[in-house]
Amino acid sequence: MELIKLEKPEKLIDENNIRVDGRKLNDLRPIKMEVGVLPKANGSAYVEMGGNKILASVYGPREVHPRHLAESNKAVFRCLYRMATFSVDERKSPAPSRRENELSMVIGQALEPAIFLNYYPKTMIECTILVIQADGGTRCASINAASLALADAGIAMRGLVSAVAIGKADGKLIVDLNNVEDQFGEGDLPIAILYPLKEVSLIQFDGILTNEEFQQCINLAYDACEIIFNKQIEALHKRYSKEIIEKDNKKEA
C-alpha cells in the first residue's frame, strides 16, 4: 500500500464519494494480520492496516519487577507503545514522548477489561507495541495487534478487542481514517469494542459532531469492528489450525 503524501488536498472526498486513497466512505483499508511472529515472546502479532505496520509482543505472566508493584489479587498489566524513529515522515526522536506515554496508557486501558487479571495474582503481563510505519489510526491498529498477541500468549481473556477510527471529512462520515484524513478532517473518533459482549472499551473524540452523527459513528464502528474481529479470528485460526500442522509434517517427511 502506497502512502499518500501528507499535504492538504483540495477535497478529501470527491463528488462520487471516493476518498483520497480511492476508498468508498465505509471501506476499511486493506488488513493483514499474522500471529506468532516472534518465537521468543510468549505471544506476538504483526498487523498491517493500510500503511500502518505494527508489531505487538506479550511477555508474561511473569514475576513483577520491582517487586513492590505486585498486587496480591490480580496481575499488573503494562502496555508500552513506541514508534520507531523511521515510522513517520520526519525522524521521530527515540526518547519516549508525551504522546507515546499517553497512548501506552490508553491502549492498556482499552485491553485491560479483556484480560482475566485475577487469574494471575502477583504477576505482571507486559505488552510491547512497536509502530514500524505510521499512517493514521495507529492506536486502533495497535489495539488489534496487542489483543491478538495476548490471545497468542494463551492468557485467559473474555474475548478479543477490535478497534477502528470513525471520522468526518468534508461533512461526511468516514470509516478507518488514514493520515491525511486524520490531519485535515473535521473529526476523529477511535472506538475499541470488546467481543463477544460487544462492549465499548475505548472511546476518544476530537472534533465536532452533532448528536445524530455521533450515534451514526458508533453504529459504523460496530459494523467495521465486526469485520476486523473476523479477520483477527481468521489470523488465529491460521496460526493454530490443523492444516498448518499437517503441512509441517509433510515437509519433514
Binding site: 485467559a156 481473556m157 473474555r158 474475548g159 485460526h237
Partner: peptide
C-alpha cells in the same frame, strides 16, 4: 475443536 477466547 479449536476455539478462540470469547467464542460462544
Amino acid at each position: 475443536k479449536l476455539v478462540m477466547p470469547g467464542e460462544l
